[in-house]
Every structure is written in structure tokens, then in C-alpha cells.
Write a protein that binds this DNA or RNA. Sequence first.
DNA 1: CTTAGGG
DNA 2: CCCTAAG
Length: 632
Amino acid sequence: MEVGGSQDVLENKNEENDFEKNGSSDPVVYQLVRVECDGTLVPATDDEVLQFEHFLHDEKVDLPSIEDEGHVEEFFTKDCMLLKKPDLEAGSSKLETTEVQTQKLDADLEEDRVRPSDDPLHLPSKCTVVHNQQIDILNTEQQDNNIFQQDNASTKTTKSTVLNYSCSAEKEKADACSRPVNDTSTRPFVSEVTSSVPDFSILREVCLDNLTIRELQEAFRATFGRQTTVKDKLWLKRQITMGLTNSCGVPNSGCVVKDYKIVGKDAKQEIPATEGVPKVELEATSLARDQALDTGNERDLLSSSYYHGEDQQGSSKRLKRVPTDNDEPQGTLLAEQGTAKRIRKPTKRYIEELSDIETNDSTGKLFSPGKRPAHDEVLRKPRVTPFREIDSLSTTYPTRKDTLGGFSVHVPYVPRMRRGRPRRDFIPFLDHEPSVECTEVQTAVEMMLEKDGEQGNHASKAVEVPLTKNAEKKGGHIETTDSKEVQTVQANDFCSADAIPKIKRGLKRKHHRAWTLCEVLKLVDGVARYGAGKWSEIRRLAFASYSYRTSVDLKDKWRNLIRTASQTQLHTEKDRACPRKNNPYTIPIPPSILLRVKELAGLQSQAGDLVVPIKLSGQSSKVVQGKRSGFL
DNA sequence: CTTAGGG
DNA sequence: CCCTAAG
């Protein structure tokens, strides 16, 4: 069953939009919802979903451990929160850990949600990801690393935008939590993290309740090795506690951490440190449930639903893991090592992103929906699914064939993803474009062949290549990208993002075609006949043979002509003095033509609505001695 | 799709 | 040339 579930992940997701559904199915589904002030959940809008998707995606794909906390934090600060709805059927055993973690996390999140005003950062409405069902992700053929990614991919397809952030996050969290101080596991990031983790031995016994926010933050830092800007005491406490105890079953309040154990101040319960990490966590969780430890209402809700499902799968799902609860981290370590999965090495990107996020966060500058999101979002997008996939396969980008100046070449292909303002700071990917080399030749040829209009039309239009491969994803993702400026979750796009736009750019740019004298003449004539502004007409009638000149081109050219004409006139004499100024590469336009252009321009502007074209039967430039030519 | 404009 | 906003 599990397996089947996993396979159907995507499908399930699609179908599980409605979080009302119970967790009868295995798949874990996250739905993005908005939590209103009153705590009600409202389905997120596409935009919101979009945002989250990115965010989530990032998280999942490359985020390793501990940092998760940070992310979550970010989440909050951004007024977004991840909520998992635990209809619980634990997925496969593997997943379980995650699941459990998730549960806990959710609890935390919920907690946060419940206490909106605690933190200034919390805004009235929030975005929440609801976890509808458990997905047996782990069973998927993809291994840990890929799982989330895959998940994302599938998610994207869904318009409903089901997000499964918690999964990874949870997982990570689990890792973090379970990670013992001396964890020497082979996991790359783990070691890394570990190193950064200050010895919280000093925190072995602490009563978090007595700490100030600042102290808590400090403790947080000590525990997770990273700074936090969260000012939510409760949250901090919980995080810290969890971190120290490797447990997620942390009461909302009144608890003391003792030797990696949580000691309920209220004497409610004592949660054994779950060294077994996730797995153990599960146990712990269940335990907690039994004990009805937490006072949190939301918690109860969660647990109820959560456990609801659990009963069925209960034993089977649970890790076979022996409940050997060693309070000792070491034990945890061993256990961890024994566990095959949960190995995800941090991506550089991830790291950067993370830091970036933090940076931003610390800045205290919550991104304002207005501006930057536009770019960032777009930029980020690409990396999300399609590209990722590609990336993993081979670091190459998809290419398409294009003909430039008669040369057939492969150019990186990227589907057009946005319609918003283009990014300007990208580094031209054009260098790639073969057209450069060909250009000279071609232009030269063209010059000589001004007549044959049809020539070289190939280059002009980039063919819309159906991206079959990315189709699905695109549908879900890229497409959505178009949505205006959605406030993006984060602005850290720099790494992956910028690459995409460039590519696209390069592809699209039409081959440059120098205007020939002949064309200019025709243009001028056309303007004279039909009037400036009738570009389509002119193009149709006068440029019938030059298919590569669009009305826009004509317009642009005309504009340039006017510009040069005016300049030339003024500086005619000067030009002689400074011949260098004349661009040798531009075709010198005979003064006569310029003159005429000028006149026409003047007439046009003057006439205003006197659109009536002046009939110049004669081709000679001089002919047009407009009555008003004097004006200019 | 066309135009007009800014880049 | 590109990209967009307006028609």
C-alpha cells in the first residue's frame, strides 16, 4: 500500500486539495492555506501557493538540517507558516520519522499561529501549509535526495499547489534534533553542523522559562549553531528544548531540559530523549499523545487526527526500531549511522540561500510585496523543477536548434517563463550565440543582396519549441510564473536563478540586420506616402519583400532616422571636423535622405492629424517641398 | 495585432 | 533590437 501511495504521490496531491479529506491514504499532502486572524483556514491563492512553492521547494531540495529551524523561522517572519494537518497514517517506516517530526513541527507552527500577537512579525493573515496526508515519499524509487525534489515536481504540476515543505523540513529537523553533539556521522552536512554546534552541555539543565528572549536566542544559537531573530519565547523554548532533547514532543511551556530530557515543569510528562531520532521520535510522539501532554488545544487537534490514522498502521509503520531510549546522544549517533537515509548533503546553493535568507531576515526587512519579488520569484522559478531535473541528469541545459544566418546551431533553450519586467542585470548568455560570428558575414552578404528580401528570414523568428519534457512542470510552475508580482517568499535568487533569463534572452534575440540604404529609402518613401505611424501599412506595401522587417522595426528605424537627421543637420559642419564621431559601421545615410526625413518628420508632427499623406509621386528626395517645410 | 515609447 | 503598455 505504501508503495502504491508513493507512486501516486502526484496524483494524490492533485486530488487532495481539499484538506478535509481524512488521512486514509498514505500520501502526505500539504496544502497551502491562509490562516486568517480568527484561525480559520482559507485555501491559498495561486499566488500564495506560488510563493510557497518556491520556498518550499528550496527547502526541500537542498536544505539540510538544522537550518530548517531557521527556515521555519523565516517563514514566520514572513508571515507565513507551515501547518501540517496530520491525518495520520504514517507512511512507510522511513517516512515515519519525518512524519513524526512533522507532527511536532506542526505543533510548533500551530502554536505560533495560535499566538499571533506574541510576535510582531506575525501578521494577521498567514500562509499556511497544511499537511493533509502522509505520503510515503520514502518508498519512492527516488532516494532521499531526490524525493523531495520529485515531490516538488509533482507538486508543481498540480495547480492546486500542494506543498510539502514540512516533510523535508521535518526531516531535517529530525536530523538536527537527533544529532548528538559528537555526531561524527559521515553525513557531510552533519559534520558541518555538528562542528558549528556549540556544546550545549552547558544547557544540560536549564529552565528555559526563566530566560529572557535574548537569552533564549542565545541558547538557540548555542543549540543550533545559528542565529535566530525570532522573538517568540515560546517558540524559542520549544526549539531549544527540542534541539537539546532530540525530541519533538516538547510542551508548550513550563519545561526544563535536563540531560537531554525534557522535564515537564508541570509534571506533566517527561519525554525521553529520542536518540533514535525520527524513529524514536515517533515513539515519543505517540507517547506524548497518550499522555496528552500538551495543553495546547491545537495540539490536541493535531494529535487526534494524527493518531487517528496511526492506529491502523501503528505497528507496521513504526520503525522496527527498538525503543531503546538512550538519553545519551551517543546512542543517537549510532542509531543514526545505522539509518541509511536521511542523508542529504547540503548544496552550496542551499547554504547560500540560507545565509541570504538569514541576512535578509536579520535586516529586519521583511520583504515588501511590491518590488523585488517580481524578479526573484521569476528567477527562482527555473531552478525549481524543470531545471533541477535536468541539472541532476547532466549539468547541461536543454537546447534547441536554431538557424542563425543560415548556420544551424544549438542554443540553450529555456521556455519563456515570464512576462514581467525583464531582469536587466543578467550576464549575456549571448556569448554562446553563434550568431555573433555569423553576423558579420551575413550582414555583409545582406548588404550586397539588399534586393532579395526573403533571404535570411530564418533567423528572425525563434520557433516556439514545445517543451515536451518540461511540459507538465511547466504547466504547474512556469505557467504560474506569469502571475504578476506575487510577493515572493524570498529574494535569494542569485545563484541558480540568473542563469535562466540569460539563456532565454540569447535565444530570443533576433539576428541583427543592418538597414540598407535601399531599405531606408523605402522606409522614407513609405512614410511619405502613408504617413509615419502607418507602420504596418508601410511594411505591407513597401516592405513586402523584406519579411524580416516588422512594423516595429520600421518604427524604430524611423525614429532613429529622425534622430540622426536632426543631429546631422546641426553638426554637419562639425562632423567634418570630427569625422571620428561618425560610426564607421553605420551606413552613411545620404544627406539628401536625411533631409527628407527631417522634412517628413516635421510635416508629420505638424500635420498632426493631417495624416493625409503627402503624395510624392516622385522618388527624388527633393521633390517634397512641403508647404510647411519651413517649420521643422 | 498595432503603435508608441523606453531601454 | 527588446519589451511593454495601450489601444
